[in-house]
Nucleic acid binder design. Structure first.
Lengths: 193, 193
DNA sequence: AAAATTAGACTAACCATTTAGTTTAATTTT
DNA sequence: AAAATTAAACTAAATGGTTAGTCTAATTTT
């Protein structure tokens, strides 16, 4: 594989994540990647195709993250998955930014992605296991509770700029550790009892 | 007040909410608003200024929404505020869309807004009241629980397209009613007991 | 009369895309 | 092994559509 192509993809991810599709400039991507603009068109047909390539790449990586919980109880495993979700968002800030735009931009790109929702599915199937073996409490609409739990976690990362001030002047790591505790408490209180 | 100015602001809100700042076109706004393009520049210095005017307008309206809970207990009042939050997001889809972009776009515009967080503040002060009179349970980091609760509600609206499918083939009103029940359950389990 | 609005041509900058070519390294032919 | 050929990777510069913003002169509204 050519070095240029990889570099273009990396740089484009940053640019698209930060400025959005319409705000991104091919010229700037080329300059940042240290390649000639035409090389982008050599590897990708158009800006649109570059965008979808970037997105597919990203979501593929996201989907390949293996989450095989190792706990002995459903409770442990659920907490592990959720913690994993948190870490994933924390370590992949581009994912959140791209995801946020992607939901709005061309629905075709987004709908053709298969792996948007591994975390939802894993939490759900783990929860259903918990209901079966009596560990979890039964709720009428588990999908709604799970969306709420994932959303609560996601929201902090997607609206970091707006939210951060509520936590005062402590380090990011401290906030994450607080959020982790809260998240565990939420899982316990909402899905168990 | 001039009729044109109002119409321009309304139309711009839609355009900016749907396409984002960079994706929006002044020509299109003028056409949709049924006014001449020059009129936009008669009222607003530039696209950027139009954008900030639209945003300030929107957040001003959002802040002016009076939330004066009428319940007899802190529990009732908290639930009322949260339900109000949900209704507000449901009825003002533009708000969510603008908010989402706004967090990313020019930080100056966003940081100069005073009223981003009325809901956070009202929930927080109501909760503190509940702690004082013994209705609510004490938690180490109430700000984190409140962010999580608001986030759980917000997430559904901001990522509607990605999430909707988890609820199957039921009407939007039904989903909202399910979400309302879940939200109440969450408030009860997280802030009380 | 002053403020609001229209018509629409105009411009300058911007920006995605193309064209026409070069470089490099590997493969084939002589 | 030298010469010829190929294909892929890459580049500099041009092209042309798009778009924010302007200008002028006239008309309508308050």
């Amino acid at each position: 594989m050519s070095h240029g192509r990889e570099k273009i993809l990396q740089t484009s991810l940053q640019e698209f994540a930060e400025k959005g599709y319409d705000g991104s400039r091919i010229d700037y991507i080329a300059k940042s990647a240290g390649v000639n603009k035409a090389l982008i068109y050599y590897h990708f047909k158009s800006k649109e195709e570059l965008y979808t390539a970037v997105i597919n790449d990203l979501f593929e990586k996201a989907a390949s993250v293996s989450i095989t919980p190792t706990g002995t109880s459903v409770r442990d495993n659920l907490l592990q998955i959720m913690e994993h979700f948190m870490h994933f968002l924390h370590e992949n800030p581009f994912f959140v930014k791209i995801m946020d735009q992607c939901v709005k931009h061309s629905r075709d790109i987004f709908n053709n992605l298969h792996h948007q929702n591994i975390f939802f599915e894993r939490v759900m199937s783990m929860y259903l296991l918990g209901v079966q073996n009596g560990e979890c409490r039964k709720v009428d609409h588990p999908e709604d509770f799970i969306v709420s739990l994932l959303g609560a976690v996601y929201f902090y990362f997607s609206h970091h700029k707006a939210i951060r001030k509520f936590y005062g002047d402590i380090s990011e790591e401290e906030v994450i550790s607080i959020r982790k505790r809260t998240m565990k408490d939420m899982v316990s209180r909402l899905l168990f009892s």
